[in-house]
């Protein structure tokens, strides 16, 4: 049996190697910031693509944003997604709940689907459960912090959910939504595939269709009242040579002082 999978992907600010402030003088996010594919969304994409590899079917990627903000959709095409849909958010940036409403509207219009996968978003230390909001609006079952799909078939999916002190295995009827929260280590067998050169050539100029939804009709119950730069964590970092016993000793004396 084949499955129609939907993946929700986001382009997020890349804060990995950033030094200095994220904020411009007026308190908004600096224009010069680079963006990247939300890493847990990438894991969600990989999960969906593997279902297609194994069982057949189709993968459709959805993303909310202006045409400039949806390079991630092209990235999805480069990795083997069948269709992409851009969901226009209008001029302003939306909160999680409003974005979830638009996504649910767009997904609702896209026809039959079996599974929706989306990342949990921890890359920046914050967390937003976009998936739970989408599932709530669509009225489907959902499982969050999913590390892996254990089984899919007979109208159900079993997700391995990472919880404090272990895992639990949740069976949900299809259609269902999985919020993927994988902590992948390097060389993990679940590591997302990279873009394929052939697909890149094919999809480089592909038109990105947009969903017929009305961003002006959704409102967010939450608004941002302000942003403040958090001073850089002042870590006085010392290099200690592994073979220098005197340096190691003085490090130990220093940290164990008073302990």
């Amino acid at each position: 049996m084949s499955y129609n999978c939907i993946v929700i992907v986001r382009e997020v600010w890349d804060t990995r190697d950033l030094t200095g402030s994220v904020l411009a003088d007026n308190g908004s996010i600096k224009d010069s910031m680079l963006t990247r594919f939300e890493p847990e969304d990438m894991n969600a994409l990989e999960m969906a693509l593997r279902i297609k590899d194994e069982h057949g079917g189709k993968v459709t990627a959805f993303s909310v944003g202006t045409p400039k903000q949806v390079d991630v959709l092209r990235e999805c095409l480069y990795r083997g997604v069948d269709e992409v849909v851009r969901v226009d958010a209008g001029a302003s940036s939306l909160g999680t709940q409003a974005a979830a409403q638009l996504l649910a509207d767009a997904i609702g219009k896209a026809g039959q689907y079996d599974l929706i996968c989306v990342g949990v978003t921890v890359a920046d230390g914050e967390s937003s459960m976009l998936g739970t909001h989408v599932a709530g609006k669509l009225g489907i079952e959902q499982v969050s912090y999913v590390d892996a799909i254990e089984e899919i078939g007979e109208g159900r999916v079993v997700g391995k959910r990472g919880i404090e002190m272990g895992y639990e295995y949740i069976e949900a009827p299809l259609p269902a939504l999985l919020s993927v929260g994988v902590a992948l280590v390097e060389d993990d067998p679940r590591t997302p595939r990279s873009a394929k050169a052939m697909l890149k050539l094919k999809a480089k100029k592909a038109e990105i269709p947009s969903a017929d939804v009305d961003a002006s009709a959704v409102t967010s119950p939450v608004s941002i009242a302000g942003r403040e730069a958090v001073p850089e964590r002042a870590v006085e970092s010392k290099d200690v040579a592994a073979e220098d016993e005197t340096a190691l000793k003085s490090m130990l004396d220093d940290v164990l002082k008073g302990e």
Binding site: W13, T15, R16, L18, S21, V22, L23, I29, D124, G125, E126, P221, V222, S223, I224, A225, G226, R227, E228, A229, V230, E232, R233
Partner: peptide, 20 residues
């Protein structure tokens, strides 16, 4: 009624206000 959260790799503290 102000909720704050660290974002962007703990570089920004964002304050949220909600209605109701």
């Amino acid at each position: 009624d102000a909720l704050t959260r660290l974002e962007f790799d703990r570089k920004v503290s964002t304050t949220y206000k909600a209605e109701g």
